[in-house]
Nucleic acid binder design. Structure first.
Lengths: 277, 277
DNA sequence: AAATTCATGAAATTTATATTTTATTTTTGA
DNA sequence: TCAAAAATAAAATATAAATTTCATGAATTT
């Protein structure tokens, strides 16, 4: 790695990426670290200064220069040009897209169709739900949750990914929460401790899992303020929450993308965190 | 035009554009020339140096500085930040759009902005990932999974919603699976039964949860065919799978929408089910 | 038309940024 | 395990870039 590698030094992003990939095991520790950071944060490389990038990547500035030179560039600035050109011509990005589409256009396989279908469903769900959600409702929902000591998260079956992501996010943001239904079997007991000082978020879609309905009812009886996310005004959950959201996701091949539900769920979590300061 | 215009100085591209439009007749000749150049070549402003931009626009460097200051910016570099953020990523672009929306139409609350942000991140993730995924890879992945006796699902933290949804879907479709990491604590033992007759799907994103990495390594050692979904070629998981997917989701407020990952995950599940007939 | 204000561009200055050097640590090979 | 080679990080240097100054020219006002 001492001498500059003769002749090479990719002048476009794709080649650079390939080069790094090929080399990643042979690179010294710090240089590999830079390579990883660069591929993960290409935009930062494009705009940053050696100082700012070095700090973000956790290396001294000289390492960045060495990195560039090891790849055959004249210096870091030279390498940086590649990252900038990547942002510059989005046209190329588009070209690339068309090429790959053309390549695979004929003989479209079943999995490819499915992927396109699920992607479409995800986009469509987000688009339609974002138009239908009333922002005031979100504020009201945050109101319910903001002063809760503990937030209980109810969701079974296909709602469980939603509540588990909420639980993860709340954990990261320091919001005390209990994820109900995680196969431990002691849910009713766990919930018996909840009271008016707490709050809950219940997520359930047709066919409404009986466990979720039961748990939500139990909490309602214990006067726990509740926010409900469901898919119809006729849902048994709808009337239990002080605030409830109707989220109708597109169905594709019997499954729903969850994209819109997750967006709403994350909004609630982050809003509560921000409101708490 | 001598003194800096009090208070103003747009912090987003849309507002800046509007400001220039409103002012263009009142601006002195050279400054108008710069304004015209800037709106016609925003990318050049983002990347260039005062010297290069000045030359391209046909004005002396000092004019660029005066231009920026006349608009209320501290200097040219300050103005340049607006042009850079515009390119940075589309999520931010959208964020900016919303902020300027909020400026004009008062009363857009923080939660509403967040919801729009998460929704947009979800859409953007799906859009960008669907372009980058190679359909052949999906077929290869299905190949790995199709004849598995049991499919092991590995995912911690923010990947857990993905694997739990896969587990739910597989259950509905009669695909035998084991969801690893569901807080039971007996994972290593569970995994020890896996062999070449089985298969696994591992999902992990930066910062890669050590449990996931360990579990995936264990399965790799036991010759379990594996499909990996991760976010970088430098991921420790990438090299473990016979097939691996790079899925980079937009980051918004520190969280990712998961929409694209879920679409891919569901594609795999349903594809396997259909291939099995 | 003269006086004043404002805009302009070249050059000087200041600030920031990248690169090189060098001493030290780490890794590699005998 | 030791010696040599390579990699690393802090500091020094060199380079580049942004900003300010100032003398000059163009508009505007009375």
């Amino acid at each position: 790695m001492l001498e500059t590698d003769k002749a090479e030094a990719p002048r476009d992003f794709a080649s650079l990426r390939a080069l790094l990939l090929a080399r990643k095991d042979a690179l010294p520790k710090r240089l590999a670290q830079v390579a990883g950071y660069a591929m993960a944060n290409p935009d930062d490389i494009a705009f940053g200064t050696v100082a700012s990038i070095a700090e973000a990547a956790g290396v001294p500035t000289s390492t960045l220069v060495r990195f560039a030179q090891a790849l055959g560039y004249q210096g870091f600035s030279d390498l940086q040009l590649i990252f900038r050109s990547r942002l510059r011509d989005r046209v190329l990005d588009y070209d690339e897209r068309l090429r790959s589409l053309a390549e695979h256009a004929r003989g479209v396989s079943k999995p490819a169709l499915l992927f396109a279908g699920f992607s479409d469903a995800a986009e469509e769900s987000v688009r339609s739900v974002r138009e239908r959600i009333d922002p005031h409702r979100i504020e009201e929902a945050v109101e319910q949750l903001i002063s809760a000591e503990t937030i209980y998260l109810i969701g079974q079956r296909r709602s469980f990914p939603v509540t588990s992501y909420m639980s993860y996010a709340m954990g990261k943001l320091g919001i005390r929460n209990v994820l109900v239904g995680s196969s431990s079997g002691t849910d009713a007991e766990t919930l018996s401790f909840a009271g008016a000082k707490d709050a809950a978020v219940a997520v359930s879609f047709t066919p409404y899992a009986s466990a979720s309905v039961g748990q939500a009812k139990q909490l309602a009886e214990q006067n726990v303020p509740m926010v409900v996310i469901t898919d119809s005004p006729f849902s048994p959950l709808a009337s239990l929450g002080a605030v409830w959201f109707e989220v109708v996701e597109a169905d594709y091949e019997g499954f729903r993308p969850l994209s819109a539900t997750l967006a709403l769920a994350m909004t609630l979590v982050v809003s509560v965190a921000e409101a708490r300061g």
